[in-house]
Design a protein around this nucleic acid. Structure first.
Lengths: 188, 188
DNA sequence: CGGTTAAAGTGAACGCCGTTAACATAAAGG
DNA sequence: CCTTTATGTTAACGGCGTTCACTTTAACCG
């Protein structure tokens, strides 16, 4: 009898793919600030480096899979944050702050999410974060023409703040995030 | 008699430091989109890998030096662009567009400029780009209190656009840059 | 000058990396 | 059961950043 859940499923030696992703996410949270190496993850999972290639064609594919996990996480956090403040304009503002805070809380993961050329394609539906963004801007923009531009502008400023703070160009202070992302002054 | 100039100066085997930086900048312009390796640069200059360590304590220092070159270049381009349109509000807008265009024109260099934790310190004066930004925002902001925030916001949105375009998240079209950076709608 | 000293470059080696090839083993399934 | 196929392993390759011990060149100075 086997407990069929996320991690220990049909086992040969283990559910390597998921185990590698879990180890990867954990490594990305570490204080190293560095993306883990393939061999490092194999070691962490207790498997030879080449075993990884049964589940990912190459290192880049592994990184992309990790990036996707990160994107999912970010989307969930943003949606939850927006819901918590009741959606609407307040929710929109909250997604922006959450975006930047996520980057600061998971620097290595966030970098990985955007350094890897995006998920190739295949994925039919846009990620949750993106969907939330377009929904919000379409609801809040007076001119639906401008909604799209507004979405890209909002994304860009949040992304810019996140990156500049990660790179130490701008002090990573929470008060500063709120001032810079004040939607009333930015998108009046 | 020696021609004391930038490149062939006091020679032992060569002016390695400058030669390495030149080779580095050239490599960064290549289509690889990858930052050059230390050994690669040593090869390009015709020197053993270890010779590099006479001029830079480690690879990271070399990368930082390259990043500084990039920052200087960006600053010059921005200043020239602002001058060309007569400065003022038009100049401010132009520096933003120039920022993003620079990133698209030199993707690997731009990435390197911001990936390396900033120039440590030491540099007494802030780079030209930064000086230009604060000067512009102080001149254009009604409230001098808000000037600083305005500067960071302007920087962030330009940086965000640049990064998202580099990462293929947003189409890298010139028309889009102008729409997104329209200062009249952004900072009214 | 000539000889010492210090700067600049070399070659061999280390451990890490991603990746390939050839081989082993366990699971699944007719 | 016995074959097939998925999933591992070990050994090896070349490239990387870096260190160590060594050599060569240029500069300085009495």
């Amino acid at each position: 009898m086997v407990t069929v859940s996320t991690s220990p499923a049909t086992y040969h030696h283990g559910n390597l793919r998921d185990a590698l992703l879990a180890a990867g996410l954990e490594a990305l949270e570490g204080p190293e600030g560095k993306a883990p190496s393939l061999r490092e993850l194999a070691r962490a999972v207790g498997v030879s480096p080449t075993a990884v290639y049964r589940h990912f064609p190459d290192k880049h594919a592994l990184d992309q899979a990790l990036a996707n996990e990160g994107l999912k996480l970010l989307g969930h956090e943003q949606a939850a944050a927006a819901r918590k403040v009741g959606g609407g304009a307040a929710g929109f503002a909250e997604t922006g702050r959450t975006y930047v805070r996520f980057a600061l809380a998971h620097p290595a993961l966030f970098r990985l999410m955007f350094t890897q050329g995006r998920p190739a394609d295949g994925s039919k539906k846009p990620d949750e974060a993106r969907a939330l963004l377009t929904a919000n801007t379409q609801a809040l923009a007076s001119d639906p023409e401008r909604a799209e531009i507004l979405a890209l502008q909002a994304w860009s400023i949040a992304h810019g703040i996140a990156m500049l703070m990660l790179d130490g160009r701008i002090p990573a202070e929470d008060a500063l995030i709120e001032q810079m992302l004040d939607t009333k002054s930015l998108f009046p």
